[in-house]
């Protein structure tokens, strides 16, 4: 991509504290449009805090967050309508049908029922769940629920999709399927994706990787480049070296 393109997500010098505890410390990185970017960090690294700031649950008091150039604090409406989100917690209404879940979400974006059903049907078809539209969400498997949540997050046609540890609680096959599904969306729809995880094996060589450790970004770049730079065997090895060196330098 060219250097001049507006990033799908730009995070510049963002810090956040809970009282005295610093959860994020001068975090900066970008998600290029049409890229699969992995935010890699252990539990407690600050991934969830960052997620809460980007989705505007908390105010980004220090630093700037832009979604396709729209600032999340100054133009929240513009920023949020360009953003699709899949939260870590399951957020489908289990008692409602799959399509009813989609219609509700579309209404939250000002889309009427007719348009919502039209878009919902094609989104479900793309997710391979066309025949489940009228089933209750409760009847779906964990992996299917996640696909519906992704379909739902894309109903209003955002160009940036955020997923917070989407594979938590899924079995190995469902995890692989979900990852493949999202990677395919990046390829075919040119979506920008920020995928947060603590699972090293979800990273592929060509992914953009952001390593977040104890609230600070330690490394960013293409996964294969990071591995090469550190002379590591794989990204897991590189991750251990980078975070291990950090812990020696700044013991907790």
């Amino acid at each position: 991509m060219s250097k001049t393109a507006t990033p799908a997500l730009a995070i510049r010098d963002v810090s956040h504290s809970y009282g005295a505890r610093r959860a994020l410390d001068h975090v900066s990185f970008e998600v290029p449009p049409g890229s699969f970017t992995v935010l890699l960090g252990l539990n407690g690294a600050g991934k969830s805090t960052l997620f809460s700031l980007v989705t505007r649950l908390y105010a980004a008091r220090e630093g700037e967050i832009d979604i396709f150039g729209a600032n999340i604090m100054r133009q929240p409406g513009e920023a949020l309508r360009r953003l699709g989100v899949v939260f870590q917690a399951r957020t489908l209404d289990l008692e409602l049908s799959v399509m009813q879940n989609l219609v509700y979400h579309a209404a939250l974006h000002g889309l009427g029922s007719f348009e919502a059903r039209r878009r919902g049907a094609s989104a479900l078809a793309r997710a391979g769940l066309a025949d489940r539209a009228n089933d209750k969400a409760r009847a779906l498997s964990g992996g299917q629920m996640r696909r519906v949540e992704i379909a739902r997050a894309l109903l209003h046609a955002p160009r940036l999709l955020l997923l917070d540890e989407p594979t938590v609680g899924l079995d190995i096959k469902a995890r692989a399927d979900l990852l493949a599904h999202v990677r395919q969306l990046v390829d075919t729809e040119k979506l920008g994706v920020l995928w947060t995880t603590h699972l090293i094996d979800e990273v592929a060589d060509n992914d953009q990787v952001v390593i977040l450790h104890r609230g600070r970004v330690l490394e960013t770049g293409r996964a294969a480049d990071i591995v090469g730079h550190y002379g590591a065997a794989d990204i897991g090895d590189a991750f251990s070296r980078i975070t291990g060196a950090d812990e020696e330098k700044f013991p907790a």
Partner: peptide, 27 residues
């Protein structure tokens, strides 16, 4: 960025009504 579908800023009254209806309908 040229290929973003930017909708016009803000929402119409009808869209506010759709959103309100959606929230009440779900509840």
């Amino acid at each position: 960025m040229s290929n973003i579908e930017t909708s016009p800023e803000g929402f119409s009254l009808r869209q506010y009504a759709i959103c309100l209806w959606g929230v009440v309908w779900r509840e």
